[in-house]
Design a protein around this nucleic acid. Structure first.
Length: 424
RNA sequence: GGAGAGAUGGCAGAGUGGUCGAAUGCGGCGGUCUUGAAAACCGUUGUACCGAGAGGUACCGGGGGUUCGAAUCCCUCUCUCUCCGCCA
């Protein structure tokens, strides 16, 4: 959510910047500004009326104490009109506030200056390309066939237990999952992230804080009986750790990492790249989150991109980093780098990480503030997060790229975690 | 699932209709004292909005009501805790 005052002070900037996101904000911004001045006018009137009311009430109290009943009763009569006015001001005031909030929630975050103009994925900018694309045999298998051949993942069994998109990992497939999770968590810890194990189910306030609600309500599984949501990413509970808090500037940045299962309904995405591990309803992911000082958040973003790069490099996967264009970047992000690894049998780039700076967009919803030493006024912090990494597509690429006639080779860094070097 | 208790400032914890944005203690910050530190003592210490400022307003879990006036009374919702039952 953009800051109300910021919009008020920079309406043209907001409209101009949102054009990059292909969002025409002129109407909404105009309405917000009108409502804002109306709101202030009303508040001035309401506050004045309330001040008078408070004054009279105090006087009445004193008069009663002194036993001047008649004067007190006379004073009472003066209040009825005031009371009515206050009631009306308050009603109008909260109606306007509600309207403003409804409009505010419609505005996406402003894109960073470096976000390229564009309509969709095809306009994303490749900023890095690294690693060698392996030359596989003609008869190389896609990962879903490899998974079956080596009994690593049972998709049909998942359908029996739950439904499509809920695979059962078994044997070395299951061990490989565990190895990756531990590897990712260890790497994050070495990079200074504190590990946390958050709940996998969150309440409405948390969903709102990071921006899943109300915008992407249909994306999450909703536990209706308790009005709770299964998390689509650990970003939600981990970032919400910092909801409604005021931090000391000297303690920034806060760095957390968490492994979690992630649940996504993926409504409406059937038929598109859904084979095998490409798109699931439940998957594992290690997430990194940072709460940063606004002046340092882009440095932090770079650091996070480097961290994720190091992970795919250690796994010896060919990858590229994309700077998302205005048409592809999310509603909440100011700047996002996507990581894609090449899955050599499918001959496809698969997104395995998305690293974003949300600036103060989430912080404003979260009421996540910090205070500079000696300064009374609080400021909104910046939030950032990234996948480091999402497992399924990493597994897909590992299986496909490392297949040999003797089996599937495990990258060196993972061997201490898997305790086997080859899947055969 | 059954029964009960509760929700107040960073924490603990008073406050049952007016002078309460809220006692007191702890913690934090500043100071006095000290070679330094501790102790002791003194002062200070919530957030947000409006206003050029003086200042004003709101907030004692959320919403509504009674009243000239509500942290305090009433209704309602949510959450937390304790005990019992069941269970990992």
């Amino acid at each position: 959510m953009l800051n109300l005052k910021f919009i008020q002070d920079n309406p043209d900037l907001v409209i101009e910047k949102l054009k990059t996101k292909n969002f025409d904000a002129a109407g909404i911004v105009g309405e917000i500004i009108d409502l804002y001045s109306e709101k202030n006018k009303l508040q001035g009137q309401a506050d004045q009326a309330k001040a008078e009311m408070n004054k009279i009430s105090k006087e009445i109290g004193l008069l009663f104490r002194e036993g001047k009943k008649e004067e007190a009763n006379a004073a009472k009569e003066r209040t009825s009109e005031l009371k009515e006015n206050i009631k009306q001001f308050d009603q109008q005031f909260s109606a306007i506030e509600e309207q403003v909030n409804e409009l505010l929630v419609l505005l996406p975050n402003l894109p960073h200056d470096t976000v390229p103009q564009g309509k969709g994925e095809e306009d994303n900018e490749v900023v890095t390309s690294a690693g060698e694309i392996p030359a596989l045999d003609e008869n190389a298998l896609p990962h879903w066939e490899l998974a079956q051949k080596y009994n690593l993942i049972d998709f049909e069994l998942g359908v029996k237990l739950t439904g499509a998109g809920f695979p059962v990992y078994r044997g070395k497939g299951s061990q490989l999952q565990r190895a990756l999770i531990n590897f990712f968590l260890d790497e994050a810890r070495k990079a200074g992230y504190e590990e946390v194990q958050p709940p996998l189910v969150v309440n409405e306030a948390s969903g709102f804080g990071t921006g899943q609600l109300p915008d992407k309500e249909g994306q999450m599984y909703h536990v209706a009986a308790d009005n709770l949501y299964l998390i689509p990413t650990a970003e939600v509970p981990v970032t919400n750790i910092y909801r409604d808090v005021i931090l000391d500037a000297k303690d920034l940045p806060y760095k957390n990492t968490a492994y979690s299962a992630c649940f996504r309904r993926e409504a409406g995405s059937y038929g598109k790249d859904v084979r095998g591990l490409n798109r699931l309803h439940q998957f594992d992911k290690v997430e990194i989150v940072q709460i940063a000082h606004p002046e340092k958040s882009y440095k932090v973003l770079d650091e996070m991109v480097k961290h994720v790069s190091s992970l795919v490099e250690k796994l010896e996967l060919p990858y590229r980093v994309l700077r998302l264009c205005g048409g592809d970047i999310s509603f909440t992000a100011a700047l996002t780098f996507d990581f894609e690894v090449y899955s050599a049998a499918q001959k496809k780039w698969l997104e395995v990480s998305s690293v974003s700076n949300f600036e103060s967009f989430q912080a404003n919803r979260l009421k996540l503030r910090f205070r500079e030493e000696g300064v009374k006024k609080t400021q909104l912090a910046h939030t950032l997060n990234g996948s480091a990494l999402a497992l399924p597509r990493i597994v897909a690429a590992l299986l496909e790229n490392n297949q040999t006639s003797k089996g599937i080779k495990i990258p060196k860094v993972l061997v201490p975690y898997t305790s086997f070097e080859i899947i055969d």
